[in-house]
Design a protein around this nucleic acid. Structure first.
Lengths: 217, 217, 217, 217
DNA sequence: ACCTAATCGAGACGGTACGTCTGGTCTTTAG
DNA sequence: CTAAAGACCAGACGTACCGTCTCGATTAGGT
């Protein structure tokens, strides 16, 4: 944990540090305030001072813990993406449809959509920020792909390849992840069209068709 | 044309309007200055005043024509996306690979990637801006999908459906467009991994497999 | 007349000048609009563009005729000061009281007081403007002092000096003018206290006492 | 003191206030910079941003302390008027001539004359500003009149009235103050003629004659 | 019961950019 | 040559945030 600003690596959560310890309640209040401000104001009109006021905290406290708006927002919204789950729905198609539906629902929440695109935009000129986004948001969700694939293989819906056995299936999973996440984001935020049942079925059919063809070819 | 700020809809380019006409040279200079500033500074540090200075133009001239930073940047980068082409490479696979490669190259240009994600982020809270992005950037590139499909159908690589004959193939084309554009953007800007030959081949295979399966199923 | 901007001295009101003649109605409308704007907005918030709009005239027309805000306002308010009169009230004391009362009434008009002090302030760094104020406003009112003195001498209230006979009484008249105008302005605009009957009587008594003492000393 | 912008009246200079205290050095630097700018540029071309730059201070610091240009300039020039003194020159006439000479010298300083008339002009539409001018500049100089009268009475040059004994001599002092200040300002700034020895003697004679006549009448 | 040291709130600080408003000028077409 | 219209450059306006700083006041552990 501890994606905080100072608190130099050595002295992390150690309780024996001298001086007054940081308030844990402040952290919670700040992140909640950030999400609330995102909903009300969106990314571009959200200001650090406003977040501090909402959280009942001094600006200094904010900057002591996060380096800037982007870092704060990444932490504030990361938890939203961890809510995604992959219950076993009985078939690969059902599993894919379920996760797409969940992801689309998430992208309808204003704090998620405005924050996600904005921090990605910022990260195009800020490599550490991109890393932070990857670590906090993106890579954590690859588990859904890995789990879905494993489950489909267990069901016999997908073949087990040499790569899988050697643990090097990353490239294939990455591709599937980019296709699902990218396509849904593009549909919802760029094309601005609804991610409804009809579209989800068509997309799932396309994806599974591709996976099946790849398995046979 | 005229995606400009005032110039009330009725009285557009008419030459008989009273008063001094708007300088056409200023338009060109402003859009060029905007792109240059995007390259140097990125979206978040680009300022209207700086663009005006670079363009040798007063700030008022800028605000007379564009309502804000987002609108200006959309116009400035829209032209970049119009450079995408779809020369006949002999097969659907080659056509897809070619357009993906072109699109990835475009997303490596700093003015394109920083601007694209940022204006999409802004558009999540600004419906008119979203429309402007769609009209100026997104929808214009759907021609590539339509043209590619038609060419593949002419080659016999894809079947001609009833929808195509009735001209209602929109939904299928939209899906393919979201998949291609979304996946490439996600790979390049979110995952932050290279869009190289190997990946392009895998992605194209997946997509074409999906299209083929859809055709047969 | 012609305290205007261009219209070079030679070619003044000549009717045989080539081209469209200047509209006389515009002059009237502009000066009236200026006075109206002074009443509503005061000096500092009065703008040339606003005056032009109120007068139904283009800004160019304004600048063709007046060099700037100060010059325009001087012309606009000069006429107000010409309304001061000195009817024969039977005695020097009554004449002085009458003119003081009139002047105080004038200084209660918002366009007069805001304009007068402002153009004087501007004139501290603008010699031509000071001259214009003197010519258009100040010196024109010295007639009141000259006339009052002559009438008092005719009544025998004041002695006739050698200076009067030689026509060199300017210095004495100037002093009286500065005392009256300066004192009333200071009372009304700086001290901000009412110029009422009681005060006027006291002031008149002081002034006439001083004149009488000078006559005897 | 504390003619500042916020700093709510109750919590004035208290040291126990929370937060970083205001820099006293900034105050000095700002007022000096304001006077310097007045000398160089005059009232109308003086800008808040320029004053801030000269003082090595941020614009926000300026606006945190003064509500606008007028308030700032009043504070900046008020100190100049406090330099006026009334040393005992042995007679009322000499005292009056002395103070007139000092006042005229002050009105030759560009920062004093341009500022004085301009803020009075502004105050014609701004009652709080008028009060501030009165409190900071005008009323403070009435001490000169009060002191001069008391000294003349002590010398036996002027009679002691019932009003003096009851401490209600305000009206008479106010009148003398308006006459002296108003007349000198009008001579210097409106008539634009020199306040030289000759004129001062004439004016003093007139004033003292009036006072003497009032005493006897 | 002190001491040390980092925290907390508050709010002032130097900056930068904002978007608007004027001031004056220039460039049109129309009379 | 003037008029109305309106675009043009220049630059001040007052505001909002930024991220830093300086305060006095807490709030712990370590002594």
């Amino acid at each position: 944990m501890c994606r905080r600003h100072p608190l130099p690596p050595g002295a992390a959560g150690r309780s024996g540090r001298p001086g007054r310890p940081r308030s844990a309640a402040a952290d919670t209040a700040i992140l909640e305030a950030t999400r609330a401000a995102l909903v009300e104001l969106g990314w571009s009109k959200l200001s650090m001072g406003d977040v501090a006021t909402r959280a009942g905290v001094a600006k200094t406290t904010l900057y002591r813990r996060w380096a800037g708006k982007s870092e704060l927002v990444v932490d504030a919204v990361a938890v939203l993406f961890d809510e995604l789950e992959l219950p076993d729905r009985g078939s690969l198609a059902a599993d894919v449809e379920g996760v797409v539906r969940q992801f689309a629902a998430l992208l309808e929440r204003p704090e998620a959509k405005t924050a996600l695109m904005a921090v990605v935009a910022e990260s195009t000129r800020d490599e550490p920020l991109r890393e932070r986004i990857r670590a906090s948001i993106v890579d954590r969700q690859k588990r859904l792909v890995v789990e879905g694939r494993a489950r489909a293989q267990a069901r016999g819906e997908l073949p087990v390849t040499a790569d899988d056995r050697s643990g090097a299936a990353g490239a294939a999973d990455d591709l599937v992840f980019d296709v699902i996440a990218g396509t849904v984001v593009h549909r919802a935020l760029v094309s601005g069209q609804p991610v409804d049942g009809e579209w989800i079925r068509r997309f799932t059919a396309l994806l599974l068709g591709g996976l099946g063809a790849a398995a046979h070819g």
